[in-house]
Amino acid sequence: MKENVKKGLITTLTLGAIVLGAGAIIGVTSAITSPFVYAHSLAGRLEAVNGVFPNAEDVSEPEEINSNGLVERYEVSAGGELIGWAYSGSQKSQTDTVDVMVGINADFTLERVEITSSSTNSAYMDAARDWLAGVNNGTTSYDDIPVGAGGTKTKQTISILVQAAIDHAKANAGGDAVSAELRLVRNVFPDATESDQGTAVELSGGTPQANYWELTKRYEVGENGETVGYAYEGSINPMSQQGSFVVGIKADGTFSRIYAVTLSLDDHDGLYNPSWIPGTYIPEINSGTRNPDDCIGGEATITAETINAMIEAAEADVLSLGGSSGEAA
């Protein structure tokens, strides 16, 4: 028995000593090699973002997003300073999948867009590439899509991805210090710096499956201490479709912006352009070229009317708050 215990002890000691020695050797080797391994993976990432940030010096590990068509993003720095983010996006358009790399500057402006996919339908892609050349050298804006120039759907898809990247960058600026509520309201108030926790509201109208809308929560949004408006979480149910939105109303009760959080799938995988929302309704009311109550002239008037009803209810709600800033309802 004693012999066995002695054997066991010596076994453990010897193996333990060898394992410790092994650990030391491996640890030293790892310390020596890790800068080289890091350099290699950095070289790989630099090459990935080279198309949009050719002067990048340091690229972070990719951060997964996987929503709104955005796959992941890299933080890009040069000279020790953050210069922007490189977003990789992928979205189906027609029969192709459009893969892009979008470079967003640290000031949330578009730096450059590169198409990274090898498409099966080159006619659309070529038209899109020509248009992108204009976007990249500043002669065209990314949300200005000429009609009838070919590849319109592809260009729209790219434009949507660029917008999604800009929105994401703005919403996530400031890292972990940004609360979920602030991130949400930044979709409609991009320069917001404060948001409250949100108050429940119960506003709705219309008939479900026909033209139903509802507003469920209201956030008070501030910029540098001053209330600039209110962000509402709402949803619509026109016909058999569903969509949830964030509606931004300025403090004076006028419509600011609307952001589609989710839209049910129709025969498009895209976000902003399923066939049951009039093609340009949302972008146009957001850019101010159309009034929300101008619902005629599109593919789906009922949907536009439902959205408009939701917006009008939100405007009325803001006005009923009396317009006093800093009031928590």
């Binding site: 193996l15 394992v19 092994a22 650990g23 491996i26 640890g27 790892s30």
Partner: peptide, 12 residues
């Protein structure tokens, strides 16, 4: 942080 120790541990 010692993921490189995996082979040694596995074989043991």
């Amino acid at each position: 942080g010692i993921a490189y120790f995996d082979t040694v541990i596995y074989i043991l």
